[in-house]
Amino acid sequence: MIFAAILAGGIGSRMGGTDTPKQFLTLGNKPVIIHTIEKFVINEKIDKIIVLTPKNFINHTNHLIEEYILYKDDIIVIEGGRTRNDTLMNGIDYINEHYGIDEDSIILTHDSVRPFVTHRIIEDNIDAAKKYGACDTVIPATDTIVESINGKTIESIPVRDYYYQGQTPQSFNIKKLFNLINSLTEEESNILTDACKIFALKDEDVYLVEGELTNIKITYPYDLKLANTILEDIHD
């Protein structure tokens, strides 16, 4: 089976001026998270969509899905975790308990606040995860990358040609991901906040899927303004 995990566990502390998590803010005429879920609902290859939210937003999320999404039978809303990895494990545990995990099971993990993920990106993630076992959506770095250890002076300026900016989805063979997460030491678990980093730490290859400049993550107030502009361009 192919699963999509929409990671909506954040509280949006960097958005400022609102107590509402950023994934529930309005973009155009509906919440950001609904725009995101819709991109996965229309993909016929995805069997189940698992939305992971803070516990106190589960009912609210279900109400939004009822209100906005026509084909909602394959969407399940469950509680996320304290960290991104905890949230991901909650999703994997749910899949294992209710559907089982076989050698071919695939999971696409996606930020709920990236509402402009394209059908092509999703398709490429499915194909790469099936073929390679792990993939990450990226775009080439366009700005000069500066490394500073102390946050005050430049340590190095790497060659930009070799660097990419990470997006999502990040997609995996579920059994492989599950086994790697369970092999982490407590120290490793505490410092790893990204599933692809787990593969890298364990010397497992993660293949690149080409992203899009418009596949932005809504983190700050400016991002929401930009997202509304992108949405207007799409509808024109």
Rank of each mutant, 00 (worst) to 15 (best):
M1D: 05
I2L: 09
I2C: 00
F3K: 04
A5D: 10
L7M: 10
G9A: 00
I11T: 09
I11V: 04
G12C: 07
S13D: 06
T20S: 06
F24Q: 05
K30W: 05
V32T: 02
I33D: 05
H35Y: 09
T36I: 02
I37T: 07
E38Q: 09
K39N: 12
I42S: 13
I42C: 09
E44N: 12
K48M: 00
L52K: 07
T53D: 10
N59R: 14
H60Q: 15
T61R: 09
N62H: 11
N62F: 10
H63R: 15
L64E: 08
I65Q: 03
I65R: 01
Y71H: 15
V77F: 00
I78E: 05
I78M: 07
I78C: 06
I78N: 01
G81K: 04
R82P: 00
D86L: 01
T87L: 06
M89V: 10
M89Y: 03
N90M: 14
D93S: 15
D93M: 13
D93W: 11
D93V: 15
H98Y: 15
I101M: 01
I101P: 14
L108S: 00
T109C: 11
H110A: 02
D111Y: 04
S112M: 07
S112V: 07
S112T: 07
V117A: 03
I121A: 00
I122M: 10
D124H: 13
A128V: 07
A129D: 00
K130C: 08
K131V: 02
V138H: 07
P140L: 00
T144Q: 00
V146R: 00
E147D: 13
S148L: 08
N150I: 04
N150R: 02
K152G: 08
T153L: 11
I154F: 08
E155R: 12
S156Y: 08
I157Q: 06
P158M: 04
Y162L: 10
Y162P: 02
Y163I: 06
Q165G: 03
Q165F: 10
T168C: 01
F172V: 08
F172L: 06
N173D: 05
N173G: 01
K176H: 14
K176S: 12
L180Q: 03
E186R: 15
T193E: 14
F199P: 12
A200F: 14
D203M: 12
L208H: 08
E210C: 01
Y220N: 01
Y220R: 07
Y222A: 06
L224R: 03
K225Q: 09
N228V: 04
N228Y: 06
I230R: 01
L231E: 06
E232W: 00
E232C: 01
D233C: 12
D233E: 14
I234E: 08
H235E: 02
D236Q: 12
